[in-house]
């Protein structure tokens, strides 16, 4: 296959190389399907239980997240190549704080899971969003989107201020983080050099491609951008899922649930649970509802806010884009704010 990858030294016509690539891809897909069909008959009993469960848990995170990551990348590619820059500039306020407020509501229009938001945020930054704006989007969109709000309402109704705490807390924390990072003298230093470079080169719609040829060229670039984004995102997703699976197998959940009825420990324990369990914000309310009688409402709100913003899988995904230093600060601020929110709800409830 590598011979296809090399520069077209052979000067073979593009269409023939393309056809050959297509055939290689189809053959490979069929070969993988055959491999899967054959290996499925082997029986999993040969593996020790713990290894088997580690694989099952990690694979479940991958199968759950992969469609959202694909969706995020596809929307990101569409935004980058097909939405003209001036459209975004026209609808966005010029005042930075107001811009962040509007950006924190963008999730209402793009209700994807938080893992799909990372490629989308990268697309927005390539499109000219600032780093603090992208962070605000990343933190707010998983909470301030219709699916999350509806499922949280279905799970908790108006009880104990959980729904209000989640929506208001998510909005305030996202904008607080955006504001804090906007004080940074050179926000571009918060990005990994590789991604910063990619942004600086500029991207997307240059306004000089029209007609059918232009659309075809855009399609080609869109497909290549999909390949580039999956190359960045998927290894991170897979490593993050493996870590999440390993923690699940290694950490006994009794320890966390035992701490649930203490006003202080319930908040910390549930934040830790949210961090390691790494489930999508769309459904985490149902999950934690199952623990509802064990945990205090402040712990539940902290779980719903912190877990939607940060978890072990998100960290590996975010690391593709932000430096370690930036992530440490981001997680610290979000964690402290979620703690304060959780304690506050416990005090009031």
């Amino acid at each position: 296959m590598t011979s296809d990858v090399l520069p077209p030294r052979t000067r073979a016509p593009r269409s023939r190389t393309a056809l050959r690539g297509l055939v290689v891809g189809a053959v490979l897909a069929v070969a993988l399907l055959v491999l899967r069909a054959v290996s499925a008959t082997w029986g999993a009993d040969a593996l020790p239980d713990r290894i088997r469960d580690f694989v099952t848990l990690s694979v479940s995170v991958v199968i759950e997240s992969l469609p959202f990551v694909f969706l995020g990348i596809l929307i990101s590619v569409v935004v980058r190549f097909w939405v003209p820059d001036h459209v975004i500039h026209r609808i966005m306020p010029t005042n930075p704080a107001l811009r962040r407020v509007v950006i924190s509501l963008v999730g209402v229009l793009l209700p994807v899971c938080e893992c799909g938001n990372v490629p989308l945020a990268r697309g927005f930054m390539m499109k000219g969003f600032s780093v603090p704006e992208a962070m605000t989007f990343l933190l707010a969109a998983p909470i301030l989107n219709p699916v999350t709000i509806v499922t949280t309402y279905q799970a908790f109704g108006w009880n104990d201020g959980i729904l209000i705490g989640r929506i208001a807390g998510g909005f305030v924390i996202a904008n607080l983080v955006g504001w804090l990072f906007s004080r940074h003298p050179r926000p571009e230093l918060l990005l990994t050099p590789a991604f910063e470079e990619a942004c600086r080169i500029g991207d997307g719609d240059h306004g000089h491609e029209h007609g059918r040829a232009g659309q075809l060229a855009k399609l080609r670039r869109g497909v290549v951008a999909f390949a580039d984004e999956t190359s960045t995102m998927l290894p991170a997703l897979i490593v993050g899922s493996a870590i999440a699976g390993a923690i699940q197998v290694g950490l006994s959940r009794d320890v966390l649930t035992a701490l649930g009825s203490n006003p202080i420990w319930s908040v910390l324990a549930l934040m830790l649970l949210a961090f390691v369990i790494a489930i999508c914000s769309n459904v985490d309310a149902f999950f934690i509802l199952a623990f509802g009688s064990t945990f205090l409402p402040g712990g539940v709100v902290a779980f719903l806010v912190f877990g939607a913003m940060v978890d072990v899988k998100m960290i590996t995904l975010l690391r593709t884009t932000f430096t370690t230093g930036a992530l440490v600060r981001l997680v610290a601020v979000v964690a402290l704010a979620s703690l304060a929110l959780g304690f506050g709800v416990n005090l009031l409830a």
């Binding site: 393309a18 690539g21 891809g25 490979l28 080169i201 997307g204 497909v223 390949a227």
Partner: peptide, 19 residues
């Protein structure tokens, strides 16, 4: 998209990626 990538990426030129 992945199948399209098999066709397009081998012939991708500068114009296709760095825009």
């Amino acid at each position: 998209v992945v199948l399209a990538a098999f066709a397009i990426v081998p012939t991708a030129t500068e114009a296709d990626h760095d825009h």
